[in-house]
Amino acid sequence: MTVAEERTTTASEAEPPAEPSRFSLSHPKSRMAWIRPSMWLPLVVMLAVLAVLWQYGARRLPYLLPALPDIGRSLTANLGYYVDNALVTLGEATAGLGMGFGAAFVLAVLTSELPLVRRAVMPIAVVLNVTPLVAIAPALVVAFGFGPLPKLIITGLICFFPILINTAAGLRSVPQQVLQVYRSMDASRIELLWHLRIPNALPFLFAALRIVFPLSIIGAVVAEMSASGSTRGLGTAISVASSMNQLPVVYASIFVLAVMGVTLLLAVTLVERRALHWHDSTLD
């Protein structure tokens, strides 16, 4: 991407935008840059090398690695199966993320506004964060059964901490002189929160979302694998297929999970560019 970025910065310096154009910055130009072979060729060559190595390994160790064509055939033949299970996992991941997000955001506001809440909540949040969720998952399944609830809780928990920490940091990082200007107008705490702190926390929030979207998939898959009685979701598909030694299904599911993760990350990036068009991280 460096070549593309260099290009766009020099271009925008040469002709400053006449009016505020939020999307003119680097966007279409960097997309055009992908036409040039120097942008995509290294990746393609790397993928080709990896594919050859994979095929060689699959030939030598057929019980450990499925051949790539087998994975592809499994994907195309049972596309409906994969899509169904992917949607289940995706639903658990996003719903759990939503719950974790809501709780973390509210708590971030409370902890940054009220030191009392911060002292009460933060130590617990830290303990929760350092406890491996894989260890909690089976207990939650015992408590809440094989339905969606323990999956949502686990996904929510795994997303909770990064959002809490980042948002709280963003809320507190309004520059002192900005706060002084608005305090000299006797702005209320609500006004400071709404007009200064929350917008200021947005870049931090998006940084957290970039971390948390992949984590949410991990949470959902771990929860599915822990609940051995559950019937749907890619995590279930993987554990069932591996117990029956259906390696192509295992790897096809993994592939679908990876695609899902990349898609989510891409979505976050697109939303971020729109919401943070003013921020340094999107300006260059």
Partner: peptide, 22 residues
Amino acid sequence: AKACAAKMIGLVPQSPALLPWM
């Protein structure tokens, strides 16, 4: 404090202290 509450004071700090998203 009362002057601030009545918005009688205009403060210009060392840095412009503008909101970058506005």
